[in-house]
Amino acid sequence: MIDPKLASAAETFTLQCVINKRPVSVDVPPAKRLLCILREDLHLTGTKRSCDIGRCGACMVLVDGKPVNSCLTMAYQCQGKNITTIEGLAADGALNRVQKCFLEEGGYQCGYCTPGMIVTVTALLNKNPEPSMAEIEEALSGNLCRCTGYGGIIRSVLKAAEQGGRRHAGRHESA
């Protein structure tokens, strides 16, 4: 039985936003983490939970096109926003260019950090289609991989940039 006094302290809140191009309306506590809403309420489990403090990047999603740690983001901050998760980077089970390059170059081992890596790299290449090595390293400083030593990951990013950078320069691309 919920103590009515405590219950009244938590406003009920309906989060209305767009997730992976679909309008979503979900009743959640207003300060619930986006990470938990995605995984528990919407069953979008591609977004991974790890550090819970915004350091590891496993839970990275795009909010209005910018990479954001979903473990640090609360429901009320997502109201009216356009959110893209790893599941929404390409339509109908297809892979986007970054995903293909991670597969081809072995940019993963256990794969736990991979969705977050791919979300960050997709955002990086949308913003900066031809990043320098320093820019790649800086952009990925918030995505930790404990398996690969980053060699394969960097190769994947360079390949994705090479394949799409020049052709798509200046164009917004999420697929």
Binding site: L6, A7, A9, P29, K32
Partner: peptide, 17 residues
């Protein structure tokens, strides 16, 4: 949707001035 007890206990109310 039913909110879990611990979610309600832990979740602050949010005021938007």
């Amino acid at each position: 949707m039913v909110l879990r007890h611990e979610e309600i206990l832990q979740s602050p109310s949010v005021w938007r001035p």
